[in-house]
């Protein structure tokens, strides 16, 4: 099993939006490596033809009727917002795909 490098941990942290500290990078690299080694034996079934299981009792086609259900008021929706303005959630500037 490939060990997890510091760079890889940094990449994962970016993907996961965690601004990890330098100390955490080392700690996580070490711990993730251990955990991944401990769980890697699961991969032994990767090329076996076994159907995956996701739930105890298999269900299909669970649908809702297309009927409006009361939701939240604007006030309720915004009640827990760190910041709000004009009925909207106020957030720091978004670095979007547009630039």
């Amino acid at each position: 099993m490939p060990s997890i490098s510091r760079d890889e941990v940094a990449h994962l942290a970016r993907l996961a939006r965690l601004s990890v500290t330098e100390a955490e990078l080392d700690l996580f690299a070490d711990q993730l490596d251990h955990i991944v080694q401990a769980v890697a034996q699961v991969g032994q079934v990767a090329d076996q033809d076994i159907p995956p299981t996701s739930h105890a009792v298999p269900l299909t086609n669970v649908f809702r009727r297309d009927l409006v259900r009361p939701g939240l008021t604007q006030q309720q929706a915004l009640a827990a917002a760190p910041a709000a303005e004009d009925g909207r959630f106020r957030v720091p500037r978004i670095l979007g795909e547009e630039a």
Partner: peptide
């Protein structure tokens, strides 16, 4: 995915 999450879902089948 295949080695980890995918395989783990197969393991669930084996356990079941």
């Amino acid at each position: 995915y295949d080695a980890y999450y995918g395989s783990a879902q197969k393991v669930r089948t084996l356990i079941k």
